[in-house]
Amino acid sequence: MKRGYFCVLVLVALIFASTSFAAERVVDLTATDGTKLKATFFPGAKPGPGVLLLHQCNRQRKVWDGLAQQLASAGINVLTLDYRGYGESGGDRFDKLPPQEAARVQNEKWPGDIDVAFAYLESQAGVKRDIIGVGGASCGVQNSVQTARRHPEVKSLVLLSGSSNMDGRNFLRDSANLPVFLAAADDDQLSMQTIEWLYTIDANPGKKLVHYAKGGHGADMFPVHPELLGLIVDWYVTTLVKTPGHAPADPNPPTVPADVQILNAIDQPGGPAKVTSQLEEARRRDPNATLFPEGLVNVMGYEHLQSGDAKTAIDILKLNAAAYPNSPNVYDSLSDAYLADGQKDLARQNAQKALDLLPSDTKDPEQLRNNIKQSAEQKLKQLGEAKN
């Protein structure tokens, strides 16, 4: 009788120990400047690799709970983090910050905060610190790619509905040994284009792209496509557990639209000139040919402008204006580039061109048209010439 009772107690203890080992726990972290950060750690069911999940900028860390629990059950330790200004983390609420301050926090504060979380994940018992994965959605895509740039122990990435800057794109081009899983939906058009762009850039032969017709943005795809959770779990099991840093080549790789593929050409040294020639050739066959999406090329131009490379920015934005000659936004952007390069006459001409096109602009939303008007008029005032 006593022996049977003892066995029952042992069994209960083992069950409790197993349950408590797998139970998630809220973690308090401290950023280098003293800001308090909240995270949740999901211990794996057994010792294994770790994954850091970084949320999109219209959500917080709990959006990852379902995925994190499945990964933990598969033997992968997971840490989810609230960025400063989000969820339960400290800092001024991000959505209340002026745009310039928000950009400063993203660029100067978040990387250090993420590194604090990364170090915590690596320090946990049972985590194989040399085999780490990172995943992100929306703005978390940029954060994930940059985290991989800073940490060579990152062996796998999952990127949902987002983009990365010029440095991040160059990193992916040079990272043939880093497998990347990407997913987005067509009803989130810009994100679909940026994810396809990153897919064309990525140098790893084991990269995988999941393309949905509908599903929304980032982790919002999970309720619509619950199988996506399983695909991500399988991806991390393959690239972190079974064959760390490796994924088999996709036997049926998706076809990426030509207008997205050409972004990679523009993004290369000498690319704007080559694509300008391609555009001229295409226009001989079809006077309305554009070849590439206006918005992403505009972003590319501003990236070069912000990095101090005004000459390349001008080349890219001139190409955009050639493809979209009726867009006031491209001329306002080109005006910014000329102004940064000290070419005041051309800056003035393009700002005025933007204003001249605004009355006939039916494509852009009202808020963007107002922003273009304000930007162009401000430049003309700065250059000493008021609008006609």
Rank of each mutant, 00 (worst) to 15 (best):
R3F: 04
G4C: 00
L11A: 15
V27P: 07
G44E: 04
V51S: 01
L53Q: 07
L54R: 11
N58R: 14
R59A: 15
L67V: 03
A68N: 03
Q69S: 13
L71G: 03
G75C: 10
D82P: 07
E88R: 12
K96Y: 05
K96G: 00
P99I: 01
E101M: 05
E108N: 12
F118M: 15
G126P: 02
D130K: 07
I132F: 03
I132R: 01
G133N: 10
G133D: 10
A137M: 12
G140V: 09
L159C: 05
S164C: 12
N177I: 01
N177F: 02
A185G: 09
D187Y: 07
Q189C: 01
W197Y: 13
L198P: 01
K208R: 15
F222C: 04
V224H: 09
P226E: 11
G230I: 03
L231G: 00
W235S: 05
W235Y: 04
T239F: 04
L240D: 03
V241Y: 01
V241L: 11
H246I: 04
V256H: 06
I262G: 02
P269G: 09
R284I: 10
N298S: 14
S307N: 07
G308C: 08
A313F: 09
L319N: 11
A321Y: 09
A323Y: 11
P325T: 12
S327P: 06
P328Y: 05
D332T: 02
L346P: 00
Q352R: 11
D361E: 06
N371E: 15
E377K: 13
A386H: 11
